[in-house]
Computed example of a mutant assay.
Amino acid sequence: MIAVIADDFTGAAEVGGIGLQYGLKVLIETEVTGSGDADLLIIAADTRSMSADDSVAKIEEITQKLLLLKPDFIYKKLDSVLRGNVYEELISQQKTEGKSRVLIIPANPHFKRLVKDGVYYVDGTPLAKTSFAFDPEFPLKSSRVKDILGSDPELISSLNLGEELPDAGFIVGNVESEKDLSSWAELLDDQTVYGGGAGFFEAILMKNHESQRADVEFNSSEEHHSLFIFGSTFPKTFELFKKMKMAGLMFINLSEDYFKLSDKDPSAIQEMAENVASWLGQERKVVITTIFTSSKVPAISPDRIRKEIGLLVKKIFELTKIQELYIEGGATAAQIFQKLEITSLRPVGELDYGIIEMEVDDYPGLCLVTKPGSYLWPECIIPELN
Rank of each mutant, 00 (worst) to 15 (best):
E217F: 14
M246H: 11
G199F: 05
D352N: 15
F317L: 07
Y194V: 01
G354T: 10
A128Q: 15
L155T: 11
A331K: 10
S92K: 03
E154H: 10
D72R: 13
E163G: 11
S301H: 14
T343Y: 13
P364V: 02
I336E: 04
W184M: 03
V216S: 12
I336D: 04
F230H: 06
R304Y: 11
G84A: 08
T192C: 05
Y375K: 09
F251P: 06
Y75F: 14
N219D: 10
I342H: 05
A334R: 00
L41G: 02
L249K: 09
D303M: 12
S182C: 11
F238Y: 12
V81N: 09
S183Y: 12
T343S: 09
L205V: 07
P136A: 09
Q94T: 06
E186F: 03
L149Y: 04
E324P: 03
R304W: 09
E61F: 04
I382G: 02
T293R: 14
E164A: 13
A52G: 11
A128M: 14
L376W: 15
H225N: 14
K236M: 13
R48Y: 10
P298V: 11
I28P: 06
D361Q: 14
S295T: 13
K77G: 00
I104T: 06
L20K: 08
F170C: 00
G169S: 00
E223W: 01
P298K: 15
P136V: 09
Y375M: 12
I381Q: 04
D190W: 01
Y194F: 10
L20Q: 05
Y75A: 08
D152M: 03
F337G: 02
N108R: 05
D303R: 15
Y22R: 02
D37C: 02
E210H: 13
L78H: 09
A299G: 12
I291A: 14
L311Y: 05
A273M: 10
V287F: 06
L27E: 11
P153V: 02
T290V: 14
G34S: 05
C367L: 10
A299R: 13
E223S: 13
G36L: 05
K242G: 09
G329A: 07
F234I: 08
V15H: 00
H209I: 02
T320V: 14
E271S: 12
S157I: 04
E271D: 11
H225F: 06
F138S: 06
F337K: 01
G118K: 03
R48K: 12
A107M: 07
G195S: 04
F170W: 00
M246Y: 09
T290C: 15
I305H: 07
M246V: 14
A38R: 03
S374H: 15
V145P: 05
K242F: 08
F241G: 00
V193Q: 00
